[in-house]
Amino acid sequence: MIIKINGKQENLTKQTTLSELIKDKKIDSYIIVVEYNKKIIPKEEFDKIILKDKDKLEILTFVGGG
């Protein structure tokens, strides 16, 4: 199953929820916001989302800026 995360294609070999992916990526301590197929997903729903082929994810965080 191929999904796009922040513009890059990734191959997921097993069924993964959004919250599992965030853990795997080691960003569970980050303040993040996720756009899943162009829709903003509240944090409470991260473990309800089971990723599927061709999904598009934008995972964003705050960085320094003026």
Binding site: I5, N6, G7, K25, K26, I27, S29, Y30, I31, I32, V33, E58, I59, L60, T61, F62, V63, G64, G65, G66
Partner: peptide, 29 residues
């Protein structure tokens, strides 16, 4: 102020938010 960007998975380090105290008002741009 802070900005919003894609998480860079190749450089997971400390995040700017860790250095901003909770009582400070955040103004994202």
């Amino acid at each position: 102020t802070v900005a919003l960007r894609r998480v860079d998975f190749s450089a997971i380090t400390q995040n700017v938010m860790q250095f901003i105290p909770k009582n400070i008002r955040l103004l994202p741009n």
